[in-house]
Design a protein around this nucleic acid. Structure first.
Lengths: 215, 215
DNA sequence: CGTTGTTGACTGACTAGTCAATCTATTTTG
DNA sequence: CAAAATAGATTGACTAGTCAGTCAACAACG
């Protein structure tokens, strides 16, 4: 069940092969896709023997699971922290969008793998991690609910739905970058964060005026 | 390249086996997933010999391709038609959301397959059909651009981005239903259509008031 | 000298796709 | 119209290849 731990004792010695395998897997999964790649591709990319992958991980699946869970835990922790640190609902959503967009700009391959192979692959791996994914929705929904209670957000839009629309917009944006569907100008990451928050909070229509965050 | 045609000449005779294979494939793909199922599963489900699948389709992939392209063509035609028939931008978006939500309520398995195995499976099949998917975005973006030109929508939110946010919200909603992440109350389909349009057009914040479609 | 890390050849299960044979309907012919 | 010929539909056993995971041996280290 549990992933094997990194060999902490000999950390100072050679390189951490387990880490090397994980990092190589990110590159291979991002380039070839989880299903299309062979375990030997990961081992080769990591410069490691085939069997060593199975010394550190029980299966090919567990490699992907580990990558996802490592990163998703950070996301969940960030959302929780944001909810405490920020007060304005719009600022909270902006901070969440920031974290996700920054994650992408910092390590596009890892985010590509998480989105394409787990989050959107709701059949195979998404099913396994549905609880984790749902938790993110619920944390965002809680933010929306609080905003509704204090009168900042409309009460007639279900919080769960709002959370989905918000997260869905972000994920679609990342997907757009990943597959080159969004034009390069929009790849100004700061602008993208503002766009997603402005769209979801302010809406597309012109009725609302100039309710923007300080840039 | 081209899929073999249904045997038109002998249509009045027995059942259309090609159609039976496609319909069976929808069920099998929806239940087991494209990668997890075997071609023999499709043949069994259709009550047809294994080899007949390869008489009508060049490959397992082509079965899925055919299902996707059949349905996506209808979506694109609908968006084009909506753009002509409706005048109000909000009404246009509502009509598009309606078509997609109605498609889901009419045949959940087919929509599940299209979304899970093609649209969101951006790696394998999504890549193949990127042009088709992009076309839907562009048609929606054109609607947004026109709305901006007439002053109904804010000019500062890129049309391409708005299209993605809108489509992303719908797809996320369907995904939520497909995997039980959205609560049952939201499964009131008419309400869902309104929600997605209201969120994207009106925004979550309370600044805008009561600008709703006649229900 | 035992423990942990490391190697890569090997196996066994699995399945997409092939193909030669059979069947059924339609058309041609005498 | 019956017999023969043709075309296309249908069958499923079989092939050829793939690849995840195992294992037995070797290396490094304390």
């Amino acid at each position: 069940m549990s992933a094997s731990r990194p060999p902490a004792a000999r950390a100072k010695n050679g390189p951490d092969k387990r880490r090397m395998i994980l990092d190589a897997a990110v590159r291979v999964f991002a380039n070839q896709g989880f299903h299309a790649c062979r375990v030997s591709d990961i081992a080769d990319e990591a410069g490691v023997a085939y069997g060593l992958v199975y010394h550190y991980f029980a299966s090919k699946d567990e490699v992907l699971d580990t990558l996802f869970l490592e990163r998703w835990a950070v996301l969940l922790a960030t959302i929780r922290q944001v909810d405490v640190e920020e007060t304005n609902p719009r600022a909270k959503l902006h901070a969440i969008a920031s974290f996700i967009v920054d994650s992408y700009s910092h390590d596009p391959d890892l985010m590509k793998v998480i989105i394409v192979e787990v989050t959107r692959a709701a059949n195979s791996f998404g099913q396994t991690h549905l609880a984790q994914i749902r938790e993110a929705y619920e944390l965002i929904a809680a933010i929306v609910t609080a905003a509704q209670a204090e009168g900042a957000f409309k009460a007639e839009i279900d919080a769960e739905f709002a959370a989905m629309a918000f997260y869905g917009a972000i994920e679609q944006m990342l997907t757009g970058w990943i597959f080159g569907l969004l034009p390069r100008e929009a790849e100004d990451f700061e602008h993208a964060k503002w766009l997603v928050v402005e769209t979801v909070c302010g809406g597309l229509e012109t009725t609302t005026v100039g309710n923007t965050l300080p840039g």
